[in-house]
């Protein structure tokens, strides 16, 4: 056959080879159809592992109990016993190494998340003791009068 037939054919074969080689390197070996089938399970399997290794920040109240057992004890006997420490003090991360201290948020906004009085008759919100932030000692921090770790009104 003549050169004008072979030459383009070689070019084409070369192109195919190049694309296949590129694909071999570019597409990871674990990319393909996995457990959930072609429509929903077409992915890179290694990504599941990557998500599993995402760092945790919240540790839970049991962790705080290792060192702040006094706080855990007093709060657990109070009406605030159901609130995890980290809701008010933020995530533990690697506390006490990093950060050495967790934030102590004395803002009214923190308490008002639950105690601002709203009328929510089909919700448990209505069962929480509510105050009107505009009339209940405006301008003062709640913890000046209430103990957040033991909010009982009798023991104020």
């Amino acid at each position: 056959m003549k050169g004008h037939v072979w030459r383009p054919l070689f070019v084409v074969i070369g192109l195919v080879a190049a694309i296949l080689v590129f694909r071999m390197f570019y597409v990871p070996a674990d990319f393909g159809v996995h457990d959930q089938g072609y429509t929903f399970g077409f992915h890179r399997l290694g990504n599941e592992q990557e998500w599993k290794q995402f760092p945790e920040k919240y540790k839970g109240t049991e962790y705080c109990n290792e060192c702040h057992d006094d706080k855990v004890e007093s709060i657990s006997k109070s009406g605030h016993g159901i609130i995890p420490c980290e809701d008010c003090h933020g995530a533990a991360f690697n506390h006490p190494e990093d950060p050495e201290k967790l934030t102590v948020d004395r803002s009214r906004a923190l308490c008002l998340r639950c105690h601002s009085e709203l009328y929510m008759p089909s919700s448990q919100r209505n069962d929480l003791p509510g105050i009107n932030p505009k009339t209940h000692n405006e301008g003062m921090e709640c913890s000046e009068c209430h103990n957040p770790h033991n909010p009982s009104l009798e023991e104020m």
């Binding site: 694909r23 959930q36 089938g37």
Partner: peptide, 20 residues
């Protein structure tokens, strides 16, 4: 044509008719 075909190769070779 070839580049188009080879890209979708990945889809063709792996199609499984029943959702596993």
């Amino acid at each position: 044509f070839i580049s188009g075909a080879s890209v979708s190769l990945s889809a063709l070779e792996l199609v499984d008719p029943k959702e596993v």
